[in-house]
Design a binder for these strands. Structure first.
Lengths: 207, 207
DNA sequence: CACGAAGCAGACCATGTGGTCTGTTTGGTA
DNA sequence: TACCAAACAGACCACATGGTCTGCTTCGTG
């Protein structure tokens, strides 16, 4: 294996991700990506078969990082307490504490760009996104089910919907924050959901 | 005033809205809009100065319709009960009941397309969106404040965030539903939020 | 009924776009 | 050191796209 081209490939992916998060995938030209990553047409199409191929790679990488993030924070939450209810709350609190940094680092969520502009084949791009969503759902749902067994929850509460609601809040808060151009909205929404979860599972703010 | 061109203009707006909701604004070409609306280049640029101008008109119309929707359902909710807490719950329930129709009629929210692909001048497009968001916030916040005065809510609850959370859930649920290609997710998320609100403001499901 | 402007049709244009091709450099390997 | 494939650089191309222009049709009005 001659020279390692992974560095260039990652530079392209990084630049593309920044641009897509700001302007959307359709509005991001490959020329713009090339300019931002200080590479060339030759380099780009050496590493990616097409623009759509870049899109697939972007989503795959983003989703993988997302799942990794989920597992890391879930592990940290599990280290805080044995009680599944407190674990769920701690999990959301960890994201809440990082909310400002998250929004500052990325003004939007990559999923939105690709889910909304479905000019890519659904098979190739939707897959990693669904995988990530399901990962969040499964991980949170097992905690919530365990928590619901220990302390009673409201009659007819849809735990699966509640598990998904964390993802829903993330996506919605991104849009709210971006619309109002106020990054603090993410933190506020996450704090709210954390409190609703504390209330639902009967977990007080105390240690 | 010669012949009335409003009909053509509306046909263009309707077709454009459908296309943008499905493929995003950037991925929607004016040629596609012209074809879908069975009009012509001449007609298009007679009614709209540019593609961006169409975008502004689309957002303005959508936001106005959104606010109208808000007021209509809020009035219906107010007709159901005198209790502000029950009014809030009823308001969400009305959207919950229409959830399947809403998702079927529009696979996404127009706001997302324009907030995410900010290739339009922020001044022209962001304005109506912010206006609509604030309208929802103000309308729900007054109800929630009144409800919070009657029955105690959890300490430190951010009522403004809770008011915005309805909008956040809408936007997030659109993305969830579209990602999973399951329109039922909207209804489930709205039902969940309704139950969380019932719980928060101490309103039982009974009449 | 003339006429003028709004409404509309469609050929046409300039440019930006995704993608190709040829050529050059680089670095591991026999 | 000769060699070769990977890694790039950048000119080039075909085409889609946003936008213009000319001209025709329709209708309210003097």
């Amino acid at each position: 294996m001659p020279r390692d081209g992974t560095a260039t490939r990652n530079r392209i992916l990084d630049s593309a991700e920044r641009l897509v998060l700001e302007r959307g995938f359709g509005a991001t030209s490959v020329d713009a990506v090339i300019a931002a990553s200080k590479s060339s047409k030759g380099a780009f199409f050496h590493h990616f078969a097409s623009k759509d191929d870049l899109g697939r790679a972007l989503v795959a990488r983003y989703a993988a990082s997302d799942i990794e993030h989920l597992e890391r924070y879930m592990a940290a939450a599990e280290a805080e307490s044995e009680d599944p209810a407190r674990q769920v709350v701690a999990f959301v609190r960890l994201f809440e504490e990082d909310a400002d940094d998250i929004v500052a680092a990325q003004p939007s969520c990559l999923y939105v760009s690709f889910v909304n502009e479905r000019q890519l084949d659904p098979e190739g791009t939707a897959e990693p996104i669904v995988e990530a969503i399901v990962a969040w759902r499964v991980r949170l749902l097992e905690k919530m089910r365990a928590a619901a067994e220990r302390s009673p929850v409201p009659e007819g509460l849809d735990l699966e919907a509640l598990a998904d609601h964390v993802f829903v809040t993330f996506e919605g808060a991104f849009i709210l924050a971006r619309s109002l151009q106020d990054g603090a909205q993410m933190r506020r929404q996450l704090r709210l959901v954390r409190m609703l979860l504390e209330q639902t599972f009967g977990v007080g703010p105390g240690a």
